[in-house]
């Protein structure tokens, strides 16, 4: 057996049809971007599930950490005035 050289991991994003954005579908291993695209086509669009594919090296993604206790998402929590429901409008006023 040859020395183990595991191909890098890629994340696959599929645009299911025109008008929609790409959505994460899963991951796969491939030696390079070109083969990652081909493998993604065979793996995630066997039944016409997509009209466009993105592949991104998994290592290139930077993510927020969901278990962090720091207030990463907190700034959004105390600003209810960012939502339309925050405002009281007299009854009968239309198109607002």
């Amino acid at each position: 057996m040859s020395e183990q050289t595991e191909w890098p991991l890629w994340e696959v994003f599929v645009r299911s049809r025109r008008g929609l954005s790409h959505t994460h579908a899963g991951s796969l291993h491939a030696p390079d971007a070109e083969l990652a695209l081909r493998n993604a086509r065979d793996l995630y669009t066997r039944r016409g599930e997509g009209v466009s594919l993105w592949v991104v090296p998994s290592a290139a993604i930077t993510a927020s950490s969901p278990d962090e206790k720091d207030p990463f998402f907190a700034p959004a929590a105390d600003k209810p005035y960012r939502h339309p429901t925050f405002y009281e409008i007299p009854e009968g006023v239309k198109h607002l």
Binding site: M1, S2, T5, W7, P31, D32, L35
Partner: peptide
């Protein structure tokens, strides 16, 4: 798995060379 090893190695070598 063993019969496919040369394919995996060749693809990895090609990717390394391209890079």
């Amino acid at each position: 798995h063993e019969d496919g090893a040369w394919v995996r190695d060749a693809a990895a070598a090609y990717a390394a060379k391209q890079a």
